[in-house]
Each structure stands twice: as C-alpha cells, then as structure tokens.
Design a binder for these strands. Structure first.
Lengths: 123, 123
DNA sequence: GTAAAGGGTGGAGTACGCTCCAAGGTCAAG
DNA sequence: CTTGACCTTGGAGCGTACTCCACCCTTTAC
C-alpha cells in the first residue's frame, strides 16, 4: 500500500507516518518510482502504536518493543512478556493515581490545600 | 525569601522557578536590588504545582487554577471545587487505564497483538 | 577590601511529537 | 496529453517544560 492508505485507516496524516518512518517506527519497501510501499500489517501496527501511546509509552519505547518482537525466536511468547510488562506499568500508574486521589480527597474541605497534608507535595 | 530557598525546599532549580515566573506560575516582589523576593507560601505552592503535574495537569492549567483560587471570594470553597474536579479527572484517567489493562490482558497469549481484538487500537 | 556565594539577564539548546510548506515528480483517467 | 490526485524531499515551526550558558551585579563573610 502507498502511504495514504495506512494513514487513512489508522487515522493519522501521511506526515505522521513519514515521521514514524524517520524515527524507525515503521518501515516499507521503496520501488523504483520512489513511493513508499507498506505491507498490510502496517495498519495494525499503527493502531498498536496508538494504543501503546495512550498507555504512556514514548515512540522510542514502542520502537524498541517492535524490534524485540521482530528479533524474538518466539514472537508470541515475547509479545506476551511485553504485554505483561506493560500491564505492570499500567498497574503502577494506577497505584500512583490512587495515592493522588486519596491526597486530593483528604484536602477537600480542609480549606488549606497549599499547606501540605502529611507528605503531600512531594508526590 | 530569595530564589534559592524555595528552589531548595521544593526540590527544583532556580532556573525552573524563573521559568515558572515567566509563565505566570509564581510571582514575587522586586526590591531595589533587583533580587526576587518570594513569600513563604511560595514553597507550598511549588509543592502543589509538582503534585498537580504528576496528576497530568499542564503548567498552564495549574496557573489557571491558581488564578481561580486567588479570585474566589471563598478560597476554601473554590479550592474544594477544584479538587473535586481533579478527582474526576483522576477517576477518568483510571477508567481509561482499566480499559487498556483489560485490552492488554486479553491479548496476552493470543499470539497476535498486532491484529486488533475488538476495537483495540482505536483506544 | 576582597573573595565567594548567590542573584540577575537574554538567549540558545534539548527532547518529544508532530505539523505545515514549497517545489517538484508520478500515475490514472478522460 | 493534460488534469488532478497522490507522492517525494528538505526544512521550518510549534508547544511543553525545562536546562544551560556567558556575562555581570549584590550580598556576605573574613
């Protein structure tokens, strides 16, 4: 597929895909005419990139994940490992939010949120 | 206090505080010698800024919150409202993470994470 | 009086993730 | 063979949040 198709299907601009290629996040062939030619899986990969982004992963991290997956002898296993790692990250992030939520709740109604409640503020 | 003290107490550099002043996040007096002079509350405020940041608020948002608090006739009430608003944001973020976690869990062991499971990828 | 610690300024630079632009080449349809 | 859609490139620009720099002034301690 030429660049427009994955762009449309993944809901991003062609510029974004070119940028992703530049940072090594996607790759394709280059036939004689100079046009990029992407395999169909690229669309799924781009969706995956978006998902990982919403998880808070940087493009660099996502690119590393992609490499790991390509290098792994057993892609399915490597992937499960990565997913599990991500789940741990998500859990950690949620725990953090839980703490912050508690801190906020504790401050509601105290009338002085700028004065630390306990160790608040160093969070 | 001169700039070094709030910097040390809030764990940031003087440059950061100068930057915050530039974007309207903190303010102080300027005596004849040209040195910044901050009130003691600045330290608590800076801690608060850090906390809000970990919540995912941008400096611009935090600055707006600060203004609202200063303008409010009843600071305590205005603050509780803001905190409650933040709590809603935290809750929303957690819900999002929960969804993502479920999506990841569903993919573990499927062997094909790049193929969307349901609406995965549009998250 | 002098030296060190601390403060001031403007401006450049960094990292991330795009986004837009101008100038030009390629391809498919009529 | 021309039109228009789609593609190419390099490079500039943006917003966020700093970070570092050089160069100069003020304060503090001895």
């Amino acid at each position: 597929m030429r660049i427009g198709e994955p762009a449309a299907q993944a809901g991003m601009t062609r510029d974004t895909i070119r940028f992703y290629e530049k940072v090594g996040l996607v790759a394709g062939r280059r036939p004689a005419n100079g046009y990029r030619d992407f395999p169909p899986e690229t669309v799924a990969w781009l969706h995956y990139v978006r998902t990982a982004q919403t998880l808070g992963f940087s493009l660099a991290e996502i690119a590393r994940h992609g490499e790991k997956l390509n290098d792994a002898p057993d892609a399915a296993e490597a992937l499960s490992a990565l997913l599990e790692e991500k789940i741990r990250v998500v859990d950690a992030r949620m725990a953090e939010l839980t703490t912050l939520r508690a801190e906020l709740t504790a401050r509601v109604g105290t009338g002085c949120p700028l004065r630390a409640t306990g160790q608040a503020g160093r969070a």
